[in-house]
C-alpha cells in the first residue's frame, strides 16, 4: 500500500512543523522515522520520538525548517501517511540560496502531494493584509484536495485574524497546536479527504 502524501505548506513561522508533530500525537503515533531533505542530494534519515522531534525540529525562529522534513507515520497496520513539513514560502525572492532551494522543494512537493494542508497564522492577520502566498495556495484548492487551517487561535488577538481569513477562504479549521484545540476535527477532515481520494 502506498503511503498518502500530505504536504503542510504556508508562510514562514505560522506553525507548520508544530502542526505536523501535534497531528502525529493526535493520530496516536509517538515514534516515527523522519527524512530530512535539503535538496542537496543527500537525505538524512532519523528515528525520533515526539519529544525529541519537537526539540530538534520545531522552533519559533523564522525559516527554521529548511527543505522537506517527511514524517513516516504508521497509523495502523494498513494506513501509512507521509506528513511532509516544508519550508515556509516567502512573497519575494529570498536572498539565501539555501532557503530558495527549500522553497523550490516545497513547490515541487506541491505538485505531487495527495492533499495540501495550508496553514495560516490567525494572530498575524489581525493587522496584516492578506498575503499573495496564501491567496495562491488557497487557489490550489480547486485542483487537489485542500484543507485550510488557521493556527494560533489560543492567542488573545486572533479572533479578528480568524475573521479576516474566513472572509478570504471559505472553509477554514481554527486550531491551536499549543492547546490542541481543533486538531480533532482537522484529523477527521483529513481522514475523510484521503478516503475520497483513494
Amino acid at each position: 500500500m502506498v503511503a498518502k502524501k500530505i504536504l503542510i505548506a504556508g508562510k514562514t513561522n505560522v506553525g507548520k512543523s508544530s502542526l505536523a508533530l501535534t497531528l502525529a500525537r493526535f493520530l496516536g503515533v509517538y515514534k516515527f522515522h523522519v527524512c530530512l531533505d535539503r535538496g542537496t542530494g543527500e537525505k538524512q534519515w532519523l528515528k525520533y520520538d515526539l519529544a525529541m522531534a519537537k526539540r530538534k525540529l520545531v522552533s519559533s525562529r523564522e525559516y527554521y525548517t529548511q527543505g522537506l522534513n517527511t514524517y513516516y507515520l504508521e497509523i495502523s497496520k494498513v494506513t501509512r501517511w507521509q506528513l511532509i513539513d516544508s519550508t515556509g514560502l516567502s512573497e519575494d525572492i529570498h536572498t539565501s540560496a539555501d532557503l530558495r532551494r527549500g522553497m523550490a522543494l516545497t513547490i515541487a512537493a506541491l505538485a505531487d502531494c495527495d492533499c495540501l494542508l495550508h496553514v495560516l497564522d490567525a494572530e498575524k492577520y489581525s493587522v496584516n493584509t492578506f498575503s499573495a502566498v496564501d491567496d495562491n495556495l488557497a487557489a490550489m484548492g480547486s485542483s487537489k484536495p485542500y484543507i485550510a487551517v488557521a493556527n494560533k487561535i489560543d492567542s488573545v488577538d486572533s479572533s479578528a485574524g480568524l475573521k479576516n481569513i474566513q472572509r478570504r477562504i471559505e472553509r477554514v479549521i481554527p486550531c491551536s497546536t499549543l492547546t490542541g484545540e481543533g486538531i480533532v476535527s482537522l484529523r477527521q477532515l483529513l481522514l475523510d479527504k484521503l478516503k475520497q481520494n483513494s
Binding site: S90, E91, I93, L110, V133, N136, A139, M140
Partner: peptide, 10 residues
C-alpha cells in the same frame, strides 16, 4: 518568487 511559481503551477 514563490508566489509567481504557485501561479505558474496553477
Amino acid at each position: 518568487t514563490p508566489v509567481k511559481a504557485l501561479q505558474m503551477l496553477k
